[in-house]
Amino acid sequence: MASAARTVRSRATPGKGHPQSQPISTRPELNLVKGTQTGGRAMVEGARRVISWTHTRGTPMMHILVAVIFLATSMFGSLMLRTQMVQNSFEATRVQNSISNLTQDVQDDQNKLDQLQASLPDKAQELGMQPQQGLNSIDLQGYQAPSSDKTGGQH
């Protein structure tokens, strides 16, 4: 059924549905060339083709090379940085722990110091020390300060 219908259409538009019935084209076209070479020679050939392709473009070979090197370097750099970051992360964690340990130590030591300071008055009392008592004062009423020219000559 389907083939009959196609036949009908093909007749209506000859040369479209049946390319095999068309005459062989004389235009240049890409054909699959079966490789006769193997291994390194194929690679060399491939590279040569890439180089020759680059010559067909407006971009010189050097630019491509620079771009590729740049890309590779960037990727490698990125990898290195990432590795470094991971290393630093470990280092940062270690330093952070160290800081918090030291902070804790400082806190504890400060607390010990505070407690010792707080116990000072009691200890002083146990040793029999007494706060200063009584009053010793000098009454400066009526005292005249020596004049400036006299003080200059006093030695």
Binding site: V86, S89, F90, T93
Partner: peptide, 10 residues
């Protein structure tokens, strides 16, 4: 965090 509790960067 990683296995040791360290922060994974970024």
């Amino acid at each position: 965090q990683g296995m040791l509790g360290q922060q994974i960067p970024g």
